[in-house]
Structures are given as structure tokens and as C-alpha cells.
Amino acid sequence: MKMAHRSAFRHGGGTAYLFLLPWLIGFFGLTLGPMLGSLYLSLTKYNLLNAPRWLGLANYRQIFTADDYFYRSLAVTFKYVLFSVPLKMIFALLVALALNKGIRLLGIYRTVYYIPSLLGGSVAIAIVWRQIFAGDGLVNHFLGLFGIEGPAWISHPSYILSTIVTLSVWQFGSAMVIFLAGIKQIPADLYEASQVDGANKLRQFFKITLPMLSPVIFFNLVMGIINSFQVFTPGYVIGDGRGGPVNSTLFYTLYLYLKGFSFFDMGYAAALAWIMLIIIGGFTSIVFVTSKFWVFYGDGREGK
């Protein structure tokens, strides 16, 4: 009887749960619990000091019908994602293609192009970026050499977002390294066979390289979307930290932060967070659903 009980315990995985214990505490205490908590809070008014006051859907109604900042911050974030994600991928792919083909010194080049990804997330580089794009900064000096009078990139609301996008595109190195690894996986005989059939370089790129890389592109795209929706530091440091000039750096995360930690409207901020989760989830699922039309898990890989 006792034996049977013990073996049932073993099969239930008593020891396994010991190994899992830290993760389980973290999962229930820091992920699942907080998520449910934030769902509840999003239906209340809560300022951290007084008890939450039940509001029903009032926060959400306010956000969708009467909050210009919400739409403003959504527009800023969408614009950022829409430009930075594809541009970064295109640069990463082009440079990866240029560095491929057994080029000499590949190791050094790869390192050099990767360094921006390594440093780009820091406050230090964001500050440098603000400075080199400032009205009398390096970029305009450089443009001046060609007789172009550059705009005030930082202080003008129409241009500041583009400087933040360039900061993101500048960090294409990590995606490039992933592409390089993907290109290496493509069997060389595919190119040889197509050459015999008389395909030119461009055709090879569209018919071989791109389809064979599509799983990697898919991965980079999903991660890129998820990460860029959450961008905070560059907007916060290159802008003035409150979304200015004229709300042009009011990223969604910054708005959420201001609502929660400047106005201490935690319920409202929780509602904003849930809307963000649904938007990111929506975009990611679109990529996932459409992936079966454009992501090619070639037989070439499994068949070999």
C-alpha cells in the first residue's frame, strides 16, 4: 500500500516539481497572478493609496472614445513599427548577402556590423544619437558638405521620429547575423543546378535565396514586431521624456508609463496594457496565419 502510494508520487513527478519550483512560483506569482490582477485593475480606478474603485468598462470607454493621447501614441508607435521593422530587415538581408560568398575578413566585418546592436539599447547611445542629429550636429554638418540644409531633426515634431527609426535601423546587426547563418544553410547545389538551367543572379535570389530564407525572415519579423511595439528608452531619451515636441515621441509605452507612474492612474494604465497585448497578439497572429502562404519549409532541408 505504502509502496503503491510512493510510486504514484513518483509518477506524479514529485521530484520534477522540486526542480520546477522556482519557475512555478514565478509563473503564478509574477506572470499569471499579475495578469489576472491587471485585468481586474483595468476595470477599476486605482492610485496605489486607496482601495481600487470598481468602474466596469469605463476606462476602456474613455480610452476608445475620449482619449486623443491614446490615438496619438498608437499612431506614433505604428509609424515606428511600420518603418523600423521592414527597413531593418532589408538592411540586414542586403548586408548579409554582401558578406556571404566566402568573403575574406568575414569575421571582422561581422563584428563591426554587429557592434551597433550590442550598444544601441543603452542610454549612452540614445544621448549620442540626439546630439549627432541636433540642429548643429554631425548629420547636418555632413549634409552641408553637399549643400543640403538639413532640418532640425530633434526639435521639429515632423522629423524626430525618423531619427529614432534610424537608431533602430542602425542596429540591424543581430538580424544580419541570423540571416548569415540562414544563408549558410542553403545547399550550394541548388545554385549550381539553376545556373545550368541559365538562371541569372536576380532570378536565383527570388527563386532560391528568398524562399529558403523565409523561415528566418518569419522569425525576424515576429520578434521585430513584438520588440518594436515595446520600445521605450530611445523615445524617452531622444525626446524630452514626456512625449514632446508636440507629442511626436509619445510612444505607447511612454504614455502607459506616464499614466501609471506620473498620474498614478494604475487602473487606466492596466487597461492600456491590455489593449497593447491584444494589438501585439493581433499583429503576431496575422503574421502566423499568413505565414503558410509565404514561409517555405523546404523539402530540401528535411530531404537531404
Binding site: G12, A16, G37, S38, Q230, G260
Partner: peptide, 30 residues
């Protein structure tokens, strides 16, 4: 290791990878 609810917990673990930090921010702060 084998244990009860393994596949459910594994799926939960995978989902948390993609969960944006900001959704947990407010309640964690509280």
C-alpha cells in the same frame, strides 16, 4: 522528467516568452 500537467505547463512557458513586459508592469509594481 515526467510529471503531471507537463504539456499544459510547457505551453504556458512558451506563451510567457512572447508576453510583453508592460502587461505585467503595473501589477508587478503594485
Amino acid at each position: 522528467l515526467e510529471f503531471r500537467f507537463k504539456s499544459v505547463l510547457f505551453a504556458c512557458m512558451l506563451v510567457t516568452i512572447m508576453l510583453p513586459y508592460h502587461v505585467l508592469l503595473i501589477p508587478q509594481y503594485i
